[in-house]
Design a protein around this nucleic acid. Structure first.
Length: 572
RNA sequence: CGGGACGUAGCGUAGCUUGGUAGCGCGCUUGGUUCGGGUCCAAGAGGUCGUGAGUUCAAAUCUCACCGUCCCGACCA
């Protein structure tokens, strides 16, 4: 490709609405342009990178035995109602109506469609295992699109769905995808690692996310350097000790605490009740029902865990009015000892199990109770791990201190089980002649997000530093004079033609611009290798090879081609 | 959905407090100049000042509404 015939609108300055580095570089390097919030046009160079990543994913999916298909982006609502996600995923669904006022869904993912396919086509255990995948546009009505391609209303996703006749088979399918994902992200040049993850509205019971460490990541990851434990903060647990039992001092006496409505205030004089001796009582409304959640005063509720453990579809903190209606007091004086209606469930965090000599609200504004024993004074409905892990806590597996890091989620693998196959009737006949639901797994990669994650991780002060595997072009040939009859241009044309003939992805910067402009642009766009041809070095019969981010290397013109091939071979 | 900031030429921005001629840099066009890290000089083109209403003799500027963008939050009683 000749630069002058192409379309690479680079920018010296980044548009004001780009906040993070990778977003700015996407725009400055002329890879994408924004149409509106959360919607982007891929320009030629950006599209090339996208295709590179897609094809790399295809290679690895095919290698892992998955089979490519393409499903409709426009989907009927009835299968979404059947799976139950018309309601549970309602917030993210884009809905469209046709001329007869019938409602359709713009696909945010395709479990319903693939399971419908399986229901019709997979009749025998002999047809499994099978894994279908596609690379396609997905639509999600994000609460807040942000960071360019990181969280967009429309994005490219690779989604795969495995069908097995047994649980063991499903685990093997899961493992194949897990391994494939590791290969994919490694090949993209990304530092990445899998973490244990919550399953959210997708459902299922076993899941890993593939994370790319980045300060701008939207996820918080807990990990242990000693034993390799790693989990999303939404899922992470630690080996932190339970609350120490004490000699109990009394039997839950009420005492006045006028104006005290926070854990912190109660921990100060004159009350001086340390936060770790307080029970924090939260009222949530889960699927329209009030629920009490008990957490130790110095801990934080992990809402994701709460949702996962209770199976609630939606939950929110109760309003002060709802708190008063349920318990007779406003937030700040709430507790689970007195005046709790029998219909209200009390969920307690495991860390409080067996705790005594605790202080909590009395369900009377301005009063608390001291010397409370959980076992004796509170009718806990269920115990769960509900707290949020913090950095430095001992690892549950090896007791070494846990660390925390922000990361970008680029892939997610789920073991789904039979949730969708049962609801959408994907049953098969097993060897014993019995009808059973397919055991499913699903596996997603955010392709467009991965592209931006690479930029977020691979850059320097001058611009993007593409890993060869995903670079829009491998080589940029840069003649420093473009007059047709010049020796410089003739050599540039020759090298360009030879590389093209050899199948190397090469761009010839034939623009009549000053060298500085070309160098800046080449650095900004981030081609892995720049081959510069100028009068000075050519006078010595030399051309210049400059790996992006590396040092200049002068080579004899006649050796240039071999050197370029050697460079590319070493990088791939 | 709540809070905050912002909306002036393709991009980045000044002007708004104190109402009166819309300015700068980049980019773009033309001519010259320069030619190994975003040359320099000169001359140009390009703006419904987000939209609509209001106040006023007069609105980019003040008021209100709406639209859009970005950030934070939508958990901690």
């Amino acid at each position: 490709m000749r630069w002058s015939q192409y379309f690479i609108p680079t920018l010296k300055e980044s548009p004001a609405d780009a906040e993070i580095l990778s977003h700015k570089l996407l725009l400055r390097a002329g890879l994408v342009r924004k149409l509106t919030g959360g919607l982007y046009t891929f320009l030629p160079l950006g599209l090339r990178v996208l295709r590179k990543i897609e094809n790399l994913i295809r290679e690895e999916m095919n290698r892992a035995g998955a089979i490519e298909v393409l499903m409709p982006a426009l989907q009927p609502t009835d299968i979404w109602r059947q799976s139950g996600r018309y309601e549970t995923a309602s917030d993210v669904l884009y809905k469209a109506k046709d001329r007869s006022n019938k409602e359709w869904i713009l696909s945010p993912t395709a479990e319903e469609v693939i399971t419908t396919l399986a229901a019709g086509e997979l009749n025998s255990y002999r047809q499994m295992p099978v894994n279908f995948y596609q690379v396609s546009v997905k639509f999600r009505d994000e609460i807040r699109p942000r960071f360019g391609l990181m969280r967009a209303k429309e994005f490219i996703m690779k989604d795969a769905y495995s069908f097995d006749s047994s649980d063991e088979g499903a685990m093997a399918s899961y493992q194949r995808m897990y391994d494939a994902y590791t290969r994919i992200f490694n090949r993209c040049g990304l530092r990445n690692f899998p973490v244990e993850a919550d399953t959210g509205v997708i459902g299922g019971n076993y899941s890993h996310e593939f994370m790319v460490p980045a300060v701008t990541g939207e996820n918080e990851v807990v990990y242990c350097e000693a034993c390799g434990y790693a989990a999303n903060i939404e899922k992470a647990t630690s080996g932190i000790p339970k609350t120490a039992a004490r000699e109990i001092g009394g039997g839950g006496e009420k005492f006045a605490t006028p104006g005290v409505v926070t854990i912190e205030a109660l921990s100060k004089a004159p009350y001086s009740v340390p936060a770790n001796r307080q029970i924090k009582t939260l009222v949530y409304v889960a699927d329209s029902q009030p629920v009490l959640i008990l957490i130790r005063g110095d801990d934080q509720l992990n809402e994701t865990k709460f949702l996962a453990r209770t199976g609630a579809l939606a939950a929110r903190p109760a309003t002060p009015e709802e708190c008063a209606a349920t318990l007779g007091a406003k937030p700040g004086s709430l507790g689970a000892v007195l005046n709790v209606p029998a219909t209200v469930k009390i969920l307690a965090d495991e860390r409080l199990r067996g705790a005594n000599d605790m202080t909590t609200g009395a369900n009377e504004d301005g009063f608390h109770l001291r010397s409370v024993s959980i076992d004796r004074d509170i009718k806990v409905t269920e115990w769960f791990d509900l707290r949020t892990v913090t950095a430095g806590e001992p690892c549950a597996k090896c007791a070494k201190p846990l660390k925390m890091q922000r990361a970008i989620e680029v892939g997610h693998v789920f073991k789904l089980g039979t949730k969708y196959s049962e609801k959408l009737h994907a049953y098969f006949l097993d060897a014993d002649g019995k009808s059973k639901p397919c055991v499913m797994g699903c596996y997603g990669i955010g392709v467009t997000r991965t592209m931006q994650a690479v930029i977020e991780q691979c850059n320097d002060k001058d611009g993007i530093v593409w890993p060869l595997a995903v670079a829009p072009y491998a080589v940029c040939v840069t003649p420093l004079a473009v007059a047709k009859d010049s020796a410089v241009m003739q050599l540039a044309e020759k090298i360009y033609a030879e590389l093209t003939a050899a199948g190397v992805e090469v761009i010839l910067d034939d623009r009549d611009d000053r060298p500085g402009v070309k160098f800046k642009d080449a650095d900004l766009v981030g081609f892995p290798l720049r081959v510069s041809i100028g009068e000075k070095s050519l006078a010595n019969g030399e051309v210049e090879l400059k790996p992006r981010g590396g040092a200049v290397q002068l080579v004899k013109a006649e050796e240039a081609l071999a050197q370029i091939h050697a460079f590319l071979a070493a990088k791939s």
